[in-house]
Simulated assay, not measured.
Amino acid sequence: SPAADATPTLAGISLPVRISLPEAGLPPALARDPVWQDDLLFTHEGLSGPAALKASLFWEPGMAVQVDFLPGTSFRALLDDPQSGRRSPLALLRQRLPQRLAETLLPPEPARRRAAELSRAARETLCAAVHARRFQPCGVADFRKAEVCGGGIDVREVEPRRLESRLVPGLFLVGELLDVTGLLGGYNLHWAWASGMAAGRAVLS
């Protein structure tokens, strides 16, 4: 998964987020919706969980990651609510996110002021910290922690129905030997079984 700077104080926190790669040149199939909404897990080494693992399939070194830590809820609406005027942004966020995370996300000074006292600019800053938090990962976890393998033999080098090599007749290639990688959710297992069956039938035919 894309790993940010180590965040040991947040380790163990898991929550649903919306994660995206604003700078990614995603393939056409994902170009309309380059966002994944799933659970994010903070570890002692960085970020993991389904949301991070899905984004990591398309992440490249130097690319920024953007996270919405409060999907489905408008933090701006909470700040603008007249009933929230005497409360601080931090108090409002603590009701919806783990305390350690809320304290880490918000800038200290405006986070402890009364919501009614905040300027428009301060509100925008707070909302960006919650809904559009950007960071640049320093790398990815090693092979031992990988869920799937990227790369492999170019699929153009195999006959699609038989999965037989176009370069070496009689050689059949299946599963992660080929450059086919799916999102989490059973897609890679399905590909492994389906491609294995297709190749097996071809061998017996």
Rank of each mutant, 00 (worst) to 15 (best):
R201S: 04
F69Y: 09
R144Y: 01
A31W: 00
R161F: 01
E117Y: 01
Q99L: 08
G200R: 09
L183Q: 02
T181I: 08
A198N: 02
D179P: 11
G151K: 04
P8Y: 00
V155N: 08
H131P: 06
L178Y: 05
Q95D: 14
L106N: 10
S74V: 11
N188R: 07
F69A: 14
L92G: 12
S1F: 03
E147Q: 14
S195P: 09
E157H: 11
P108E: 09
D38K: 07
D68L: 05
E109Q: 14
L189N: 05
R162H: 12
T43H: 10
L184H: 05
D80H: 06
G139S: 00
I13K: 09
L53S: 06
D38G: 00
F58C: 05
V168K: 07
W36S: 13
L92P: 14
A64M: 12
A194N: 09
R18A: 14
L167W: 10
T9V: 07
L178N: 09
T7Y: 00
T125V: 09
S14E: 15
T181F: 06
S48T: 11
S195D: 10
P107I: 11
R134D: 14
R144H: 04
V148E: 06
E159M: 02
L118T: 06
A146E: 14
Q136D: 07
L184G: 02
T7Q: 12
I13T: 14
L90C: 08
A192S: 01
G200H: 01
D81N: 12
L41R: 10
E147C: 07
A202W: 01
A199W: 03
Y187W: 15
W193V: 09
R161V: 11
A132W: 05
E164D: 02
F42Y: 15
E176S: 08
L184W: 01
R120N: 11
E157A: 13
L30K: 04
I13W: 08
M63Q: 15
A192C: 04
D33N: 11
L47S: 06
H131Y: 08
V67C: 07
Q83L: 13
A128Q: 15
Q95H: 08
S74P: 15
L93D: 11
L10D: 02
V17Y: 06
P8M: 13
C149K: 12
T104R: 15
Q99V: 15
E45I: 00
S195Y: 00
F69V: 14
G152I: 00
A11M: 06
H131L: 08
R120P: 01
D80W: 01
L57W: 00
A141R: 15
Q99P: 11
P2G: 05
L26R: 09
T73I: 02
P169L: 02
V155Q: 04
D68C: 03
W59S: 02
L171F: 00
G46P: 07
L101R: 12
D142S: 13
M197N: 07
E147N: 05
A122N: 04
V148N: 02
Q83D: 15
A6R: 12
L105V: 11
P108N: 08
